Amino acid sequence: MNEEVLFYYAILAGGIICMVLSVLLYFWLREDNGIEFSLFFRLVLLCLFGVGLVWYSAPSLKYVVYHDYATTKGVCTVEYNDESKPRTIDLYYDETGDYFSFLDRAELGAYGPDVPYTCHVTTTKDHEFEISYRIYDFKTDKLLYSSE
């Protein structure tokens, strides 16, 4: 299982944990005489944050669980930002305008808009979460790097 799938499950689990924790803390901290408004407000925000994470990740759950992925193929350019934390690699498809970002570092000879590559990016069917990618040489179609 790669980092992107683990990141998806972390988002989903974090949302569920935030929702359950906020409800449990409400009943545990509530005394017979009530709860302070500021604490109640924080618990509501924690619950809403959890709902937001689940709302964002739940539509793609069936695609991730059943490995129902789509692959986007075409000519792309690779951007790599060495200064960002965490280090990311960005793939831009010039023809379609698609953009994909991965938490990875591909060892390629050159980066930037002047160096075209052929890329195969695997995403969920709804294109919300990136799964993996492969970078090929534009002229020879030789595999240069794979995140799988």
Rank of each mutant, 00 (worst) to 15 (best):
A110L: 06
K139L: 13
V75A: 10
D98C: 01
K142C: 11
G112H: 06
F138N: 13
G74P: 04
H127E: 15
D104L: 04
N81R: 05
D104Q: 13
G109T: 06
S84I: 11
P113E: 10
P86Q: 07
I89W: 00
Y145W: 14
Y133M: 08
C76V: 12
K125I: 02
D137E: 11
T77P: 00
F129Q: 04
Y111R: 07
E83A: 09
T140K: 14
L108G: 06
T96F: 02
T124R: 05
E83K: 06
R87E: 13
G112Y: 02
A110M: 08
V78S: 05
V121C: 01
E128A: 14
P113C: 02
T124C: 09
G97D: 09
Y111L: 07
Y133V: 13
Y92T: 11
S146V: 07
Y99M: 12
E83S: 12
Y136F: 15
D104E: 14
S84R: 06
I135N: 07
P116T: 14
T140F: 11
H120V: 11
D141T: 03
K125T: 14
T77I: 10
K125H: 08
D82R: 01
L103C: 02
D126K: 11
I89V: 15
S147F: 01
N81A: 11
Y93T: 04
V115L: 03
P113F: 09
E83Q: 06
L108E: 06
T124Y: 03
D94N: 12
Y145L: 00
V78T: 08
K85G: 00
D82F: 00
R134H: 02
K142N: 10
P116Q: 11
T96L: 05
G97I: 13
P116R: 10
E83N: 05
S132Q: 14
H127Y: 12
Y80G: 08
G74C: 07
G112Q: 03
H120S: 10
K142D: 12
I135W: 01
G112W: 03
T96S: 15
V121D: 00
Y80D: 10
C119R: 04
T77H: 04
Y133K: 04
D90K: 10
T123L: 05
G112M: 03
L103Y: 13
Y136M: 13
P116K: 10
I135F: 05
E95V: 15
K85R: 05
I135A: 12
D82E: 11
Y136P: 00
T88C: 01
D98Y: 06
I131D: 09
F102W: 03
C119D: 09
S146F: 01
A106L: 02
S147C: 05
D98K: 14
Y117R: 07
T77Q: 05
F102H: 04
A110Y: 04
F102I: 07
C76T: 08
E95D: 15
T123M: 02
L103E: 05
I89G: 01
E83D: 07
L143G: 11
S101W: 03
D94F: 04
H127Q: 15
K142F: 08
